[in-house]
Design a protein around this nucleic acid. Structure first.
Length: 263
DNA sequence: ATGGCCAACGAAGTTGGA
């Protein structure tokens, strides 16, 4: 089974590129982030024509997640609220950043972690609090059958220096600050491991490049899109790679898709 | 070459992204 994750930065702008990519890479499940469209205006038919079932949780202008799956998903839900206590969820579900579904014996979680703007800003504090709720959410899911979690998404965090093109002086940079890294490490501490790092240990592999200043052509990137697996799934992982090809196209997303293959 | 991104919204410039 192949499961992919891709922040497409507007599904309406990227629709054709995603369709073309799926034709070349017919993954079983594709998790999308930053769809940036209300559910009624999501371009469903091009993907349904490829045989995908669509599960979407969008909003106007910002955020928005969707899961495309060749097989129907079970137990589909959106937001933290179906899993986490209401007082803990607060207003976090107003932004559409979370959904999940079960396919075969795997629970796929699709996340768009808040960006955080600048270290110390209100949005930064929001990001850190959001990650605390995420930890509760995933811990509860791990306790539920089928117990196999594949957590995909744009995490907006580069966990280690080897995940950044130039890690110098990034200590106070958004996506690399110690508090963000610790918050994500705490999430992973419930029993999740990075699929990509099972196969690749060196630096220089990135999933996001800034549109500005020729970030991609100079490979000034960050690895912030991740697939985290529970222990049994981690053992079953056969490969995990970043496909940089779509980033080379005209009018690309600033993110590249990441694909994990599970046995 | 002296400034250099992209998308949504809405109809010009602001906001958000990362």
């Amino acid at each position: 089974m192949k499961i992919a994750t891709w922040n497409v930065n507007s599904i309406r702008i990227r629709q054709e590129q995603v369709v073309n990519w799926l034709q070349d890479n017919p993954v079983d499940v594709l998790c999308l982030q930053e769809t940036k469209v209300v559910d009624g205006e999501f371009p469903r038919s091009p993907f349904e024509s490829l045989g995908y079932h669509l599960y979407i949780s969008g909003q106007k202008s910002y955020n928005g997640v969707a899961i495309l799956s060749l097989k129907p998903l079970l137990e589909v839900s959106t937001g933290f609220a179906p899993v986490v206590d209401a007082e803990r969820v607060g207003d976090f579900d107003e932004q559409k950043r979370v959904m999940m579904g079960v396919v075969e014996d795997i629970r796929v979680v699709n996340l768009y972690v808040p960006n955080g703007a600048e270290v110390g800003s209100d949005k930064y504090e929001y990001k850190l609090r959001w990650l605390e709720v995420l930890k509760d959410y995933l811990r509860s899911l791990l306790a539920k059958p089928p117990h196999n979690l594949c957590v995909c998404g744009d995490f907006n965090i580069a966990l280690e220096d080897r995940d950044i093109y130039n890690p110098n002086q990034k200590n106070n940079h958004i996506m690399a600050s110690p508090a963000e890294r610790q918050a994500l490490q705490d999430v992973l501490g419930i029993g999740l491991a990075d699929a990509f790092r099972k196969f690749t240990s060196e630096g220089g592999h990135f999933s996001w490049w800034d549109y500005r200043q020729g970030g991609f052509s100079r490979n000034r990137g960050w690895r912030i899109d991740h697939q985290y697996l529970s222990a049994n799934l981690y053992e079953r992982a056969k490969s995990c790679r970043i496909d940089v090809e779509p980033r080379k196209l005209a009018q690309p997303s600033d993110h590249a898709p990441v694909i994990v293959e599970l046995g």
